[in-house]
């Protein structure tokens, strides 16, 4: 399997963060979600950001995805500095470069599986056909079903299809298997793996499930808003081989 060194030499830097912090006001409490993160992610890389709940991993992913801006520090996507981008630049960035997969799928309940994908392809530059995206996740026969008529795993696969349909350079997944049972989770992870290998999409998955980290090129351990360590997997496991 590929290792990190080959990636580093072949892939360019996709993300670069310099000392980013993020604090929130949650009701009457101030939460320090991130306390200085320096990180690089590379093109074609499948990374897993691992941490307990409250470790700041969702915040980090949101910042990488242009959904949130750091309180201090800098974030770059290639040449674009996300930390000082305008609302318009961020919208544009999300529209053309990033795909999101959320833990709770966030499908629009009033739209069918296919329509949920069209919502994204309609505004993208060079999308794949929504039907093809569904085919990639193996749900062609479910395309006219509404979210309420799909199982959790199917909904998440629709969400993945939706995320990849615009051919994004980066796919950011927030606990994509968090709401799923093991078997379904494996199917979803396989789908992600295929996307990474066949389309060469850079994928970053955040999870608190340590076993998923075995399928990544690189694992970033997050603890209390800081990176505690980074591990390279010289040998990656396939989703089937993961032990939960």
């Amino acid at each position: 399997m590929t290792n990190e060194n080959t990636l580093k030499s072949s892939g360019e830097k996709v993300f670069l963060t310099k000392g980013i912090t993020r604090t929130y006001q949650m009701g009457e409490v101030q939460v320090h979600a991130l306390r200085g993160i320096d990180l690089e992610l590379y093109a074609g890389e499948f990374s897993v950001i691992l941490g307990l709940s409250g470790s700041g991993k969702s915040t980090l992913l949101n910042i990488l995805g242009g959904l949130d801006i750091p309180t201090t520090g800098q974030v770059f996507y290639k040449e674009l500095e996300l930390s000082h981008a305008t609302e318009e630049q961020l919208t544009n960035y999300r529209r053309h470069h990033v795909g999101f997969v959320f833990q709770f799928y966030n499908l629009i309940p009033s739209l069918t599986a296919l329509e949920n994908i069209s919502v994204v392809t309609e505004i993208a530059d060079d999308p794949m056909k929504p039907e093809y995206a569904l085919e990639l996740v193996g749900l062609t026969d479910r395309m006219n079903h509404f979210p309420a008529q799909l199982s959790g795993g199917q909904q998440q696969r629709v969400a993945i299809a939706r995320a990849i349909a615009k051919n994004p350079a980066v796919l950011l997944c927030d606990e994509p298997t968090g709401a799923l049972d093991i078997e379904t989770g494996v199917t979803v992870l396989e789908t992600l793996n295929r996307v990474n290998q066949e389309l060469g999409t850079t994928i970053s998955v955040i999870t608190h499930n340590a076993s998923i980290s075995d399928m990544a090129h690189r694992v970033i351990y997050l603890n209390d808003g800081q990176i505690s360590s980074i591990k390279q997997n010289d040998i990656r496991k396939t989703p089937h081989e993961l032990s939960w």
């Binding site: 995805g65 960035y93 999300r94 990033v98 966030n106 919502v119 994204v120 505004i123």
Partner: peptide, 16 residues
């Protein structure tokens, strides 16, 4: 709320 957030995440502008 969540749908709006998703739409924004997909790159829909405030205006849209």
């Amino acid at each position: 709320r969540d749908i709006i957030a998703s739409l924004k995440a997909f790159g829909y502008s405030n205006w849209a």
